[in-house]
Design a protein around this nucleic acid. Structure first.
Lengths: 119, 119
DNA sequence: TTCTTATTCAACCTTTTGGTTAAGAATACG
DNA sequence: CGTATTCTTAACCAAAAGGTTGAATAAGAA
């Protein structure tokens, strides 16, 4: 569970990847079209897309020689609950947040192997 | 603006730091007490706290020889709006989200110096 | 088949990250 | 004063992140 949060937050920490997500919010896109506005190589964008896919934030489906990238916003539900629990900005399912907190803290107090617990 | 999001998401991407935030949600703590449950050096925790402070997620105030760490959940409002806008899970201020999107995407389409725009 | 387009992979490089230990600096205590 | 205690800094290290270029793969087009 915390490993999933690791991947999602790390994926969101890069402005290029957030920009890609914003683009995909408007429409599904092929890799080359995703890369077009950016001042970096296609290979770099391909890596960014792989990071986003590993985090579950997008899905990629190959059709013909194009690979379509599609936003998967459901993956954001997990960190959204986490953050809202902290901020209490909006109505949020407190039970969900309690479970998150418990999982995170239990990971802590086990003392040994704190950081590298398996998912 | 995006630089702030970079820092916040990067700070949240580490499970140790999220665990620290969870601990601080219950009460303010001095650095040594924050470090106590973790299987790593005090210096490492000190660095983690510095990352959290740079991201605006906590504030640290020295009183006597103790340095108190205090959660600042307001910093989470920014990424929370960002994420909710994508997920549309809960009622969210869509105007706020539109502004975020515009800022992120305008950063994109400027083509040159895409990633390293100043804050 | 040959050519072009779309995408990834491999190798490499530099910077950042997350940790260590050891040495400071600042503050309280006896 | 001298001595703990609290916390940060400095120097170092290994691994990961983010980029590059060039070659490889896959699939449509001619």
């Amino acid at each position: 569970m915390t490993a999933k949060l690791d991947a999602i937050f790390a994926a969101l920490a890069d402005p290029t990847r957030r920009a890609i997500l914003a683009m995909l919010l408007e429409d599904d896109m092929a890799v080359t079209d995703v890369a077009e506005p950016f001042a970096m190589s296609l290979a770099a964008i391909s890596k960014h897309l792989a990071v986003l896919e590993r985090a579950g934030l997008i899905a990629q489906e190959k059709r013909g020689r194009l690979k379509w990238c599609k936003l998967d916003p459901v993956a954001l539900q997990t960190p959204s609950v986490w953050m809202q629990g902290f901020g209490q900005f909006d109505p949020v399912n407190l039970d969900d947040f309690e479970r998150f907190l418990a999982a995170e803290i239990s990971g802590v107090s086990s003392d040994a192997d704190l950081v590298n617990e398996g998912d």
